[in-house]
């Protein structure tokens, strides 16, 4: 059962990383436009993009 000492924290840490990524994505507005995101991937940036100040 000693293995639990490693396995459980490792599993929880992985889960927490996922949760943190989800919360980050939510906060940075990545869930705002799911339809648009699906379409956007089909287009190349043909004009050179300027630096985004964000």
């Amino acid at each position: 059962m000693d293995i639990l000492v490693w396995l459980i924290p490792a599993a929880l840490a992985l889960g927490l990383i996922g949760l943190a990524a989800f919360l980050y994505a939510l906060r940075s507005g990545q869930f705002e436009d799911l339809d648009g995101a699906a379409a956007r991937i089909l287009f190349d940036d043909e004009t050179p993009r300027k630096k985004d100040p964000r």
């Binding site: 436009d33 799911l34 648009g36 379409a39 004009t47 300027k50 985004d52 100040p53």
Partner: peptide, 15 residues
């Protein structure tokens, strides 16, 4: 974006 002074232009398809 082709306008020189535009810094950010983002359209939201759902809204």
């Amino acid at each position: 974006h082709a306008e020189p002074d535009v810094r950010r232009a983002r359209a939201n398809l759902s809204t």
